[in-house]
Write a protein that binds this DNA or RNA. Sequence first.
DNA 1: ATTATTCCTACTTTTTCAATAGGAATAACA
DNA 2: TGTTATTCCTATTGAAAAAGTAGGAATAAT
Lengths: 141, 141
Amino acid sequence: MKISTKGRYALRLMLDIAEQADGKPVSIREISSRQNISDKYLEQIISILNSAGFVRSIRGSQGGYVLKNEPDKYTVGMILRLTEGTLAPVPCVEEDAEACERLGECQTIVVWRKLDEAIRSVVDHITLADLMENGGDQYFI
Amino acid sequence: MKISTKGRYALRLMLDIAEQADGKPVSIREISSRQNISDKYLEQIISILNSAGFVRSIRGSQGGYVLKNEPDKYTVGMILRLTEGTLAPVPCVEEDAEACERLGECQTIVVWRKLDEAIRSVVDHITLADLMENGGDQYFI
DNA sequence: ATTATTCCTACTTTTTCAATAGGAATAACA
DNA sequence: TGTTATTCCTATTGAAAAAGTAGGAATAAT
């Protein structure tokens, strides 16, 4: 029941890029040294963010990444689901779950549904902007 | 970010025992055939519940397990934490977490704290009694 | 004695996690 | 035009966790 490093790094990655507000692309090198994360691992993670269109890449020298949209357009849930996969606490409450044949007799499903709902209600209501140093309406806290 | 089968089976195990209200001990065999779970695996899981004092075991023929306390004394959280370990979504919000040296600069901690709180508020407020067929105050739904 | 059970420990297999590695393609800049 | 800094792509590795499987000893009812 843990968010993996992949998801956590992705969030830090996005946040780091979001905060370079001067519009200059941010390179993996910069991020990895700022965040103390293996650059080769970050490369893989950002490529996921890139092919999903969350960031735009600029290749070659002086290249790097910039956010595709404004920070308030990215929820924590979007970023975690993209990198981690579903955040459902059990397979049977996943978005596209195949019908469980125990459903009629299942007494625990209510727990998983409530848990799923609780998780959603957190991650889908916090945006990158909320997490930025001087950004976001701080109402969510 | 999944509850493992171990925790899920433990919950079903406890619930199954709770529902044999006639006071007769329930054997692993019975449970495994009723719940369609490997009996050898269940054995291991129930031994955890047993040494934690959640159930009482009766050895020998006609033996089995009974709950130590009333169903409303067991929250889902107690059972999951015992079998799964902590339910904290990241290491740094665990009960006995060693101080993270990034804490001062960490911008994501607020997400994990809120997530942790959301998870707790679900699992710590549902008891076995709530999940039983004719048991529990149904208010929690 | 026989049988049904718990108890205990070790082993195995599969999957996931968390990187690491190496080199090709691209573009800025001197 | 060559050098350098970057992204891009794919494969491999090592460690740990998850999910069981296996075998037999101890215990107690009948």
